[in-house]
Amino acid sequence: MEHDQPLVRDVFPDLIAEVATLLQEEGESELAVSVRDVRLVGECGCGDDFCQSIWTEDHPPGQPFGVGHRCVPLLPSKGTLVLDVVDNRIMYIEIVDRPPMRRRSVER
């Protein structure tokens, strides 16, 4: 299956390495493995300068996640990282009050 969206680890490798480590520390081993394969579907777009959140799955804007949803708050050294997970699939990574992420250029 071909994917148009890049892997988040190719665009923001430091973020994915940190999230994977934090998930392991929280005992979320399955999510720690799966976060390495999430795709950058979109950016939050809220316009707040403190928000760098990203979508990792398609989801209708403004709609609740529904049954099977859970939040996974992590404990980074700076800012806030929270995952929205539905049926063990990472849908959204909330990234708030953190230093600007370094975007790596992804060639196609």
Rank of each mutant, 00 (worst) to 15 (best):
Glu28Phe: 00
Glu30Ser: 15
Ile54Phe: 08
Glu43Trp: 05
Phe50Leu: 01
Asp14Pro: 09
Leu31Met: 02
Arg39Tyr: 07
Pro13Leu: 11
Asp48Ala: 15
Leu31Ile: 02
Trp55Lys: 10
Trp55Cys: 06
Val41Asp: 02
Asp48Lys: 12
Val19Lys: 06
Glu25Pro: 04
Arg36His: 10
Ile54Trp: 09
Val41Leu: 03
Gly47Trp: 11
Phe12Pro: 05
Val33Ala: 08
Cys51Met: 06
Glu57Gln: 15
Glu57Tyr: 02
Val19Asp: 08
Leu23Arg: 11
Phe50Asn: 00
Val19Phe: 07
Glu28Cys: 00
Gln24Asn: 14
Asp14Thr: 01
Ile54Asn: 07
Leu23Cys: 05
Glu43Met: 10
Thr56Ala: 06
Cys46Leu: 13
Gly47Ile: 13
Ala20Ser: 15
Ile54Cys: 11
Ile54Asp: 09
Ala17Arg: 13
Phe12His: 13
Arg36Ser: 09
Arg36Phe: 04
Gly27Pro: 05
Thr56Gly: 12
Gly47Tyr: 07
Val35Ile: 15
Gly27Gln: 05
Gly47Met: 13
Ala32Asn: 05
Val38Cys: 06
Ser29Asp: 15
Leu15Ile: 01
Val38Tyr: 08
Trp55Leu: 15
Gln52Glu: 06
Arg36Ala: 11
Val35Asn: 12
Gln24Ala: 13
Thr56Arg: 13
Phe50Ser: 10
Thr21Asp: 13
Glu30Arg: 10
Asp37His: 10
Ala20Cys: 03
Leu31Gly: 06
Leu15Arg: 06
Leu31Thr: 03
Glu57Met: 12
Cys44Ser: 14
Glu30Met: 12
Glu57Phe: 01
Arg36Ile: 01
Leu40Tyr: 05
Ser53Leu: 04
Asp14Gly: 01
Ser53Met: 13
Phe12Asp: 07
Gly27Asn: 05
Glu30Leu: 12
Cys44Asn: 10
Gln24Tyr: 09
Ala20Pro: 03
Phe12Ala: 03
Glu28Gly: 00
Val41Lys: 03
Ser53Ile: 04
Val19Thr: 07
Cys51Gly: 04
Phe50Gly: 00
Gln24Trp: 00
Cys44Trp: 09
Val41Ala: 04
Cys44Lys: 06
Leu23Ser: 05
Glu26Ala: 15
Leu40Gln: 00
Ala20Met: 00
Phe12Leu: 12
Glu30Gln: 12
Gln24Cys: 10
Gly42His: 01
Gly47Glu: 12
Gly47Phe: 12
Val35Phe: 12
Cys51Asn: 04
Asp37Gln: 14
Leu31Val: 03
Glu26Cys: 06
Phe50Cys: 01
Trp55Val: 03
Leu31Trp: 00
Trp55Ser: 12
Ala32Lys: 10
Gly42Tyr: 05
Leu23Tyr: 13
Leu31Ala: 09
Ser53Gly: 14
Val38Ala: 08
Leu23Val: 07
Leu15Ala: 02
Asp48Val: 02
Pro13Asp: 11
Glu57Pro: 02
Phe12Asn: 01
Glu26Met: 05
Leu31Lys: 05
Glu25His: 14
Pro13Glu: 09
Val35Leu: 10
Cys46Phe: 10
Glu25Ile: 04
Leu22Ser: 12
Val38Arg: 05
Gly27Phe: 06
Asp37Arg: 12
Leu31Cys: 10
Leu40Arg: 08
Ser34Pro: 02
Arg39Thr: 10
